[in-house]
Design a protein around this nucleic acid. Structure first.
Lengths: 213, 213
DNA sequence: CTTACATGTGTACATCGTCCACATACAGCC
DNA sequence: GGCTGTATGTGGACGATGTACACATGTAAG
């Protein structure tokens, strides 16, 4: 259907083949380059080698495209968390659960610092609680960022690091702290902080959550 | 310079009088109605009763207007915090300091829930650390939201509720937690939560901060 | 009173989202 | 195989936006 090496080059046939996917991928690239505001229909279609209106055969409007891009970006967040969790060298069950919980935070924040545009897009204009568990937003494990956090907290209860009576709403407390730090880092007043200071703050915020839950 | 009751009605003279202020006020209204994205030059000038280009005599571009609106919105946040702090019935010095610290969080989050558009605008595209202390962003006390938080934490140290060695970076930890919750409330997955549940979460997050700092 | 400057107006252009009518390709039926 | 219907892409158009450039008009300074 396409010529050349990349999918985004010249197209020989009238039909595209998988325009929907191509538009989402272009949107994810745009999100990386300029955040949610940069996810614009016309540029996405341009990159897919198609006229602007072709997008409307696959998405009701710009918001629908942005929603799809947002889901893809959430999947990237999930993968970042999974990567940090996978890097843990197993010791005992209790410590493993603790580190896997902390890895949710470090992975989340590492991604926020590495790909701020995609991070912002992942959590812009998104979703109620149910759609936060859609499979399009899942990483390799099939879990969304929120589900990875939930599971990590459940495991903390299992190994008795977290008293069961504190478990309800714990995901929202942990998420608030980590998400807030990410926002302050990305376009908030902590933007200009040197990287090592940011790393220290990440550790401190996760310490605070662990201690304060 | 203007006729009628409102500033936004018909203007008789060629000159406006205080267009800069009028544009900022219109921008703050737009922010209330639709968040930062709704702060658009043409609509602001329309409401000020002026042609679009007149705005460019007072602001370099849309972003400059948005920055000014953002500062005004931060001042509103400061006022919300001050209101919650003023409502505290004094008991002893230690408890007062504790409640004044908590009021920073409750005021911040109350404003986020009451005026989500202005809240989002207040912290969109804003500022490095220095400009977070600009006087345009201050409330009635002359302090910005960030400065109110800093002062509350200093007071916690004074009354020995917070060990001095934990004081550095404490504002960022507290701010992260509260700001993150606000974001999750406004356009995050907690948007649809019933109001009482939100209130419970506010208390819990502030508890977490107090305990975890 | 004249002149310079500050401020608002008018016209114009590029970009964006999106609607409508039209063209084309593929899929199934005969 | 040829015909037809539906899915998909094209082309042109409209209104909205940011903003540049040239012009008009008040206000102030000499």
């Amino acid at each position: 259907m396409t010529t050349g090496t990349g999918e985004s080059t010249v197209r020989t046939s009238y039909r595209h083949g998988d325009l929907r996917r191509a538009l989402i991928e272009a949107g994810v690239d745009l999100a990386r380059e300029g955040g949610p505001a940069a996810v614009v229909v016309r540029e996405a279609t341009r990159r897919a080698g198609v006229t602007p209106n072709a997008a409307y055969r696959h998405f009701a409007d710009r918001q629908a495209l942005l929603d799809a891009v947002c889901s893809s970006c959430q999947a990237l967040v999930a993968q970042a968390i999974e990567a940090d969790q996978a890097a843990i060298a197993p010791t005992d069950v209790v410590e493993d659960a603790r580190l896997r919980f902390r890895a949710v935070g470090t992975g989340y924040l590492r991604f926020a610092l590495e790909e701020p545009g995609q991070f912002q897009t992942a959590f812009s204009a998104s979703s109620d609680m149910d759609s936060a568990t859609t499979s399009a937003r899942a990483g390799n494990s099939g879990l969304t960022p929120f589900q990875l956090l939930t599971r990590a907290l459940d495991d903390l209860v299992t190994v008795r690091l977290l008293p069961p009576e504190r478990r309800p709403t714990a995901e929202f407390l942990a998420w608030s702290a980590v998400h807030g730090l990410a926002e302050l880092f990305i376009d908030g007043p902590l933007r200009a902080l040197p990287a090592p200071v940011k790393q220290t703050l990440i550790v401190r915020v996760i310490d605070m959550v662990e201690k304060g839950l």
